[in-house]
């Protein structure tokens, strides 16, 4: 027999999955636009705002479910995780917007070496894809791959910063814009890891220690 709460939980899940799709697309578009030198700030800003509003809606529905049905055990963990995951997806949108904003700050960046950003960007996109798949399928094993992938992103970011700071040939504009974008990608990777941690929490109740 279906429980009344199941209708609310299903709606919540669908809203979070809508956010997942939009946030993945937003980050991907922002990275590609930077690499291709396209100014898509307005489009990405609009998507980022949409994600923010969706996050509010997820929070409202989660609170309504708590107030109406007082979920416990795995239901409670799922509702709590949906709020956290929705926040993560909203942050994806915000960082995508920040990436696209770099274009506005620095203008033409066509002379900069974008190899590191392309590489880290691909890794971040893969992490988002994986975190969403793990969340959708409640797949703890898949989610457990994310922290190692996050380490790769962290290392790449630090490596870029160190190289830029010590290289006598560094172009200031390229160095600062590259550092900013890699920093945003590093934060995106962190949030993808948090989404993965939520999967473990929903399934087993285990909480990962945050770095």
């Amino acid at each position: 027999m279906a429980r009344l709460m199941d209708l609310g939980l299903e709606k919540l899940r669908n809203m979070v999955l809508d956010m997942a799709e939009l946030s993945e697309n937003t980050v991907s578009t922002a990275i590609d636009a930077y690499v291709q030198g396209k100014d898509l700030r307005e489009r990405i800003y609009n998507w980022s705002e949409e994600l923010r509003m969706l996050q509010d809606e997820v929070s409202e529905l989660a609170v309504e479910i708590i107030a109406r049905y007082q979920p416990v055990a795995s239901d409670l963990r799922f509702v709590k995780s949906c709020m956290e995951v929705a926040y993560g997806f909203s942050r994806f949108g915000r960082y995508a917007h920040d990436i696209s904003d770099v274009f506005g700050i620095f203008g033409d960046l066509s002379t900069c070496d974008k190899t590191a950003i392309e590489r880290v960007g691909s890794q971040a996109k893969e992490m988002i894809r994986l975190s969403i798949k793990a969340f959708t399928e409640r797949n703890v094993e898949m989610a457990s791959k994310l922290p190692k992938m996050d380490d790769v992103v962290d290392d790449a970011y630090l490596d870029f910063v160190k190289r830029s700071a010590t290289s006598p040939d560094s172009d200031t504009k390229c160095m600062i814009s590259g550092t900013l974008i890699l920093r945003y990608l590093e934060r995106i990777a962190d949030h993808a890891t948090y989404v993965g941690e939520s999967v473990a929490y929903i399934v087993s109740g285990e909480r990962a220690a945050r770095k």
Partner: peptide, 10 residues
């Protein structure tokens, strides 16, 4: 209430 260990409790 948050994380019961037994399936029956859940």
């Amino acid at each position: 209430f948050e994380n019961p260990t037994e399936e029956l409790t859940e």
